Structures are given as C-alpha cells and as structure tokens.
Amino acid sequence: MKQNSSRGILIKSWEAFERYAEKYDAWYEKYKPAYESELLALKTFIPENPGILKTLEIGAGTGRFAVPLGIRYGLEPAGSMAKIAEKRGMQVVLGVAEFLPFKRQSFDLILIVAALSLFKDPEKALCEAAGVLKPGGQIIIGILDRNSLHGYFYESRKKEGRFSSEAKFLSTAEVSGWLIELGFEEIKACQTLFKHPEKIERIELPQKGSGTGSFAAISARKTFCGFGD
C-alpha cells in the first residue's frame, strides 16, 4: 500500500471506516443478495475485458466492488480498509478523491461506488476523476439514489448509521448533471434494490433508468475535449 505523504492525509470523517473496517466489510456477507444485485447492475456497464484496461476505483473501501469487477487499482483514505482491499489483490494508494495523486489522462476506466456521497466535495472529486481519465474513457458511478422510492428511508436514518452519518445522498439527475457539465457524454443509468436490503432474498435483475430502485448505476464517457483536461 502506497501513501500519498506529500498531502499529509488525515481525514476525520473517515474515522469510522478506519476503526470498523471489518464490520463494514461484513455487511456484504450479511446482505449478500443485495450486494450481488448491486454488482450485477454495475456489470451492466463494465467492458467485456477490463483486464486489458488501466482501471481505478476511487474510494475503493475493502475492494468488494473493484475485485469482482476486474478493477486493478484503488484510492482509499482509510488505511485499515485499504489493507483488506490489498489482501483481495488490489494495488491501493492512500489519498482523497479531491486531490488525486495520479498522472493526467492515465486511466481508461474509473469506478466510484457509494463513496461519492461521502466525499467532502463531490463535484471537485468528479473534476479530478475527469482529469485522470483518458479522452474517450469511461466512468461508472454507483449511488444510493436520494430520489428513489426508498431514498427517503436512507436519508431519514443516516444519522443513526455508523458509516452514513456524514453522507450527503445524491440523486441520479444530480450526478448526471455534474457529468454533463464536465463534458461527459453517453450517460446511461440502470437501477436495482427494489426492496430494503434485509428483505432481498435473491439477486435482483437490474432495470433501465432510475427512480424506483434505491441503488443506481450511472455510466458516462469522457469526450475528447472535456473540462477535466
């Protein structure tokens, strides 16, 4: 695990993830059908051979999404989370999304799952992502959609959550609007989690669009002259 020491990273908002990494990771086993439903929605937009691409997950957590989706590199501020991701085979750099420690236009595909709502400045983070993405490259974002049927439930209970108390849940329309402003095109979305996670007993098939399922996967492609350059 490499550390971006030049920026002196110390993010208090990530203390829960630092302290309770194992408990965070265990959620995916406890609610496995919901987790695998999210994976399936994201796979809708993953290229057939991601192994031949240079790929990055921003906010990689414990590697629960990156590894099965074929994403090789990760950026993560919580060291204990990064260690678990590395045990799963990822190469992880410690850092934050608003100051990416990577060369411009160096990645073919960037993944951000559930982390965008936790970033201190999500718009700046997306601008940074656009900057390290190659022209024509793809970004895939997974969010808990604030404007979905169950979005109100997550919003109303977030203060009670160990990991969600600092979250600012976003809508698919909001994220899509930011991507358009950054010069992204071919914006598509699909959705899943049509019940609360604890009530999902089998993997749900993703559906096009957004607004019904509480988890939305958004895909967009960077133009050859986007604002992130």
Rank of each mutant, 00 (worst) to 15 (best):
I143Y: 08
V67A: 13
L42V: 08
K23N: 09
P47S: 05
P206A: 05
Q207L: 13
I140V: 13
I141L: 09
A66I: 07
I71H: 13
D108Y: 04
Y31W: 10
S148Q: 05
T192R: 06
V92R: 11
P206N: 05
S13N: 08
N4S: 13
I187N: 00
M81V: 03
R88V: 01
Y20L: 02
G61R: 07
A189F: 01
P33S: 01
L39Q: 02
F45Q: 03
P206R: 05
L170K: 11
E29Q: 15
E38M: 10
E15D: 12
R64A: 11
K222I: 01
F45M: 04
Q191C: 02
W178M: 15
K199V: 00
L182D: 10
L133T: 06
G51D: 13
S165R: 15
A115F: 08
T55N: 11
R146F: 09
P68Y: 11
F163K: 07
E18Y: 12
Q138A: 12
L205P: 00
K158A: 10
I46K: 06
I9T: 09
E185S: 13
L133P: 02
G161E: 02
E123T: 01
R146Y: 12
E48T: 09
A220W: 01
K168S: 15
G211F: 11
G63H: 07
I140K: 07
Y152F: 15
P197C: 05
V92A: 14
Y24A: 03
H196S: 11
G95S: 12
S219M: 03
P122I: 08
G209D: 02
L75H: 08
K199Y: 09
L100V: 04
A189C: 09
L10T: 10
E48Q: 12
L69R: 02
I203K: 03
A167S: 15
S164D: 14
I110V: 15
C127R: 13
K87R: 14
L126F: 04
K134F: 08
K222R: 08
E174I: 10
P101G: 09
G131D: 03
E123G: 00
K2A: 05
G142K: 02
E123M: 00
C225E: 12
A115K: 09
S106L: 05
T62R: 07
E185M: 10
Q3M: 05
S176F: 12
P68I: 12
L39P: 01
A60T: 15
V93G: 08
F17C: 05
V67C: 07
E128D: 13
E160C: 02
E123I: 01
I139A: 09
K158S: 11
Y154S: 12
G95F: 10
K23A: 13
D229C: 09
L170P: 04
N147S: 15
H196W: 11
D229K: 08
I52P: 00
F227I: 10
E181W: 06
E160I: 01
T44D: 02
E166R: 06
K12L: 11
S148W: 02
D108P: 03
S214E: 13
K2S: 06
R221Y: 02
K222C: 01
T62I: 06
F169W: 14
A216L: 04
G151V: 14
F107T: 10
R221A: 01
G59V: 05
L149N: 06
A129H: 08
W27P: 01
K159P: 01
E22P: 00
G177H: 14
R202L: 00
Y152T: 11
I139P: 07
E22Q: 07
